[in-house]
Design a binder for these strands. Structure first.
Length: 549
RNA sequence: GCACCCGUAGCUCAACUGGAUAGAGCACCAGCCUACGAAGCUGGGGGUUGCGUGUUCGAAUCACGCCGGGUGCACCA
């Protein structure tokens, strides 16, 4: 419908020889204002030098709209042009929901653009903590949204199993191993304090006894055991949440294939790298940044920036046209350097979208729960899932914009689970499922929704509640597109809540099951459509849509 | 000190990217079950959108300055 109006308005503007403007259609907040509105007259008024209402009138006079699609056009307020849909168009549009069923909502908006979305990317030095949850959920939802809107999505996890952190892990496991054997042995200064380290050490004692007691410089056995345990734990948590990655990209491969030294050489060639104080520096100031940065330490080891630059370049080399990174606010400082580096290598970073999410504070018993991995009492994502459940974890983390500092009150999420927004949505779905069971008993064959659609007369749906719901349901593809355009999954939860609300209101006002079989069929169809949209929306958000609860 | 993010109802957050009367949930008050799920519905109170100046037909949204909170500012990642 928007496309139709856009085309008609564009030619109207041409006919009036008005300048072309970026046409924006909004859904008015107030229903009395119609189904769609545009502010183009307001935007044109200044350029044309006329009062906005006159401009709007001129446009409306020239517009020749198909009465089968648009029932009314009027000018309101300071110069908005409001459109009201013809009911036949609403019904035709809505039938698509039944025809498309589980794929309703999918669109070709993304035009199969090759997209890489990288997130989580926690190194295997410990289990995921609760704070990671926000990123885990955000990325999973966004990846689904992009897939539904026609992007060719690769889900990626980037990790590093070498270097300082892993050395530290190995030392920590070794220390716990010695302690387990009864030796006096101190943990390294910044060692990982979590209890899971003791668990790892314990398995090594069980397997090797005290045969690994002799200090061994590289602690490889301890590091390997630690890495394996941690990665298993991380993957298990992701699996519990139903979050899948297509590619686990090991930073180490960048070294083995020489991609790291390649970047240093290229920087040197372009005078973007120099040696000083025994280290190699990236001349970021030449690219307009605050200060130069070390990319290779005096020990010969690169800092994280260098592999990150090489990694991002590889993403482009692998053919990705859109590169999405999801980071917590604590990593924000690294982004400008990496992007500058990638640009310096000749790649445009216009197609890199970095999504930053703010930190989450978990409150329990009125106090902030500590989450540091080095803290023995770290609150893990597994702990959170165990307390509030998988669906609540998904829904709560995705229902707020990424840029808000979120307070997650665990006590509240548990205690008030009845009035939890995720249940509101799931309840609507279960309620519909229950009605449809009645309908099936009453003899309606819902097994083929496409055929069901063909034999249903939707024009019997004439009340405000029915039409409001119908229009809202038909908006689902647009809602997904809106999320994809803005990279903001939380808007989907807002939309789905509106759907559930519109359904409950309809349900309250009208009986589905009735003697009038024709009317009943129309309303059964409406229920089926609502169930389809809620079900599809839940699938995008990785939330279960229960038949009963 | 510098950079980035945020500040909206008692609390947690929206507001379709500059639009019409700033909206939901929780909490509070008052109603609604002899028919399909009351985990629901209807109504009510609650706001100087942190403060100020500016930009324009129009600002929660943009700019500048304060105030308050968060996150960074490593030869850690």
């Amino acid at each position: 419908m928007k496309d139709y109006l856009r085309a008609e308005l564009t030619s109207a503007l041409q006919a009036l020889s008005y300048p072309a403007v970026d046409l924006i259609f909004d859904k008015p907040k107030v229903a009395a204002h119609g189904d769609l509105t545009t502010n183009c007259a307001l935007m044109l008024a200044k350029q044309v030098g006329a009062n906005p209402r006159q401009v709007a009138q001129a446009i409306v006079d020239v517009l020749k709209l198909d009465a089968a699609r648009i029932a009314a056009v009027d000018i309101a307020g300071p110069g908005f042009i409001n459109f009201r849909f013809a009911e036949t168009a609403v019904f035709d549009n809505a039938k698509k929901i039944l025809v498309e069923g589980p794929t309703f909502g999918r669109s070709a908006f993304g035009a199969k653009r090759k997209t890489n979305i990288e997130w989580v990317s926690a190194n295997p030095t410990g289990p995921l903590h609760a704070g990671h949850g926000r990123q885990v959920i955000l990325g999973a939802a966004l990846a689904n949204i992009l897939e539904w809107t026609g992007f060719d999505v690769t889900r990626e996890y980037y990790f590093n199993n070498a270097g300082n952190q892993m050395r530290n892990l190995g030392e920590s496991v070794y220390a716990r191993y010695r302690q387990e054997l009864g030796d006096e042995y101190l943990m390294p200064e910044n060692g990982y304090q979590g209890d899971y380290i003791k668990g790892i050490a314990h398995t090594i004692v069980e397997e090797f006894g005290d045969s690994k007691r002799a200090p061994d410089d590289d602690k490889e056995l301890f590091t390997k055991h630690g890495e394996q345990w941690c990665f298993d734990a991380i993957k298990k948590t992701l699996a519990t949440l139903g979050v899948k990655h297509d590619v686990f990209y090991n930073e180490d491969s960048l070294y083995k294939t020489g991609k790291i030294t390649e970047v240093v050489e290229e920087f040197k060639k372009r005078d973007l790298a120099y040696e000083a104080e025994g280290a190699v520096w990236f001349r970021a100031t030449a690219l307009g940044l605050e200060s130069d940065r070390v990319i290779v330490k005096s020990t010969g080891e690169p800092t994280y920036r260098l592999p990150d630059i090489a990694y991002h370049r590889e993403k482009f080399r692998r053919g990705f046209e859109l590169v999405i990174d999801i980071f917590g606010a604590d990593h924000i400082a690294t982004i400008p350097d990496v992007l500058a580096g990638v640009r310096a290598l000749g790649y445009s970073t216009d197609n890199v979208k970095v999504i930053i999410h703010q930190m989450v504070a978990f409150l329990k018993g009125g106090a902030i729960v500590k989450m540091s991995k080095r803290d023995a009492n770290g609150y893990t994502l597994d702990d959170l899932i165990a307390e509030v459940g998988v669906d609540a974890v998904h829904y709560f983390f995705v229902m707020r914009g990424a840029n808000t500092q979120l307070d997650f009150d665990i006590d509240l999420a548990k205690q008030q689970s009845d009035s939890n927004p995720v249940y509101y949505l799931q309840y609507a779905h279960a309620r519909i499922a229950s009605i449809l069971r009645f309908a099936a008993e009453a003899g309606f064959d819902l097994s083929d929704s496409k055929r069901f659609a063909e034999t249903t007369n939707l024009t019997l749906l004439s009340s405000k509640e029915e039409l409001d719901l119908l229009k809202l349901l038909a908006d689902f593809p647009a809602a997904l597109k809106n999320c994809a355009e803005s990279y903001e999954p939380h808007r989907l939860t807002l939309y789905l809540r509106e759907v559930a609300e519109a359904f409950h209101r309809f349900y309250h006002e009208h009986r589905v099951i009735s003697e009038d079989k024709t009317l009943m069929q129309s309303r059964v169809a409406l229920c089926l459509m609502a169930k389809t949209v809620i079900g599809n929306g839940c699938a995008v958000l990785n939330v279960h849509a229960p038949e009963k609860m």
